[in-house]
Design a binder for these strands. Sequence first.
DNA 1: CGACAGATTGTGGATATCCACAATTAATCC
DNA 2: GGATTAATTGTGGATATCCACAATCTGTCG
Lengths: 199, 199
Amino acid sequence: MTHQVHLVDDDEAIRDALSWLLQSRGLTCQTYPSAESFLAGWTAEVGGCLLLDIRMGGMSGLELFERLLIRGNRLPVIFLTGHGDVPMAVSALKKGAFDFVEKPFDDNELVNRVLEAVQLDTYQRATAASCDSLNSRLERLTSRERQVMELILAGKFNKVIADELQISMRTVEVHRANLFEKMGVRTAVELSQLMSTRN
Amino acid sequence: MTHQVHLVDDDEAIRDALSWLLQSRGLTCQTYPSAESFLAGWTAEVGGCLLLDIRMGGMSGLELFERLLIRGNRLPVIFLTGHGDVPMAVSALKKGAFDFVEKPFDDNELVNRVLEAVQLDTYQRATAASCDSLNSRLERLTSRERQVMELILAGKFNKVIADELQISMRTVEVHRANLFEKMGVRTAVELSQLMSTRN
DNA sequence: CGACAGATTGTGGATATCCACAATTAATCC
DNA sequence: GGATTAATTGTGGATATCCACAATCTGTCG
């Protein structure tokens, strides 16, 4: 529930105006005067979205965006610019920016975009969280259990699995029961569906 | 393998130049002098991509794009424009356009975009085809078989399924065997994985 | 009415899975 | 050396699934 609009712009007047606008619509807003200060003050745990001016002293908005991409951060980014051109906008969007807005902008339009971006982030964090939970369960499996799981997901009988792994059927049964327990499923079908949620 | 670049532009000089460029790189190219003539001459079976000028007499490129979206056609679209602005580009890309290129453009760049678009279309058509094949198999199921399938995918035992549907276990077994046969799977796990490919 | 498809059920046997009870071996950690 | 963890195997019984052989009932189509 820690969702917050992060606003990076080197123009104090714009920071104040936008900050006021967003807060008047019930959005929590954190401002930063530069890309560097954002990188210093933000951690990936803080969700929401990023309102990013392009032309700034120091690191530009586009550079900051690239940094976040490389880091693997998936915070939705809305670019704000007074001097954007078409290739720049196209490039940003194709790289995954959420939106690209020219100043001056319509207040209501912007707020709507921000709300959409925050909603997207909420959704992405939910799926990422369930994916993390799945991964942590997978890590708790022993290597043998993982091998057995793969063969189960290949639709093979315990008998066949035992043959392929050169162990007894009984051992396969034990591994099977243990990994089902660790993964929190009751049947092979549930396991299969769990695995296909993120793959 | 019917993949073709479709070029819609009302300027004959551009049509000729681009057509020549694309064909010199081994791409088959079909030109149209207007959005209307494209709609009249193209069918969804013909894959590839669409190079679309925005400003044209009659229906504009953007209007044609909207038409294709409404129809559900997923042909990758590359917009070409000499008078594009940022909001227009942003809007087009957010609606799913593949790219948005300003004239004059670099020949190599454009050819690369076209190749990427054609590749995307090839991929999309492949997944759409496997999805169609799955759907046609689903349609061959009787309503009872579909009910049983749902419960199987919920990870339930035949016994439980029989209870819920108020029929005997033997009947469930029969439906189960029949639907596995029709869906082309041998186990519940395979069925589960088949269903999760497109969902 | 006869043909056909879909849904239904039964019997019985071969296979598979599920699981409690019980135990051995090997490697690692403290 | 003792504790822990992972991997391994066995027995035996309760459940489930798989499947061939067989049959009844209903509704639709021509």
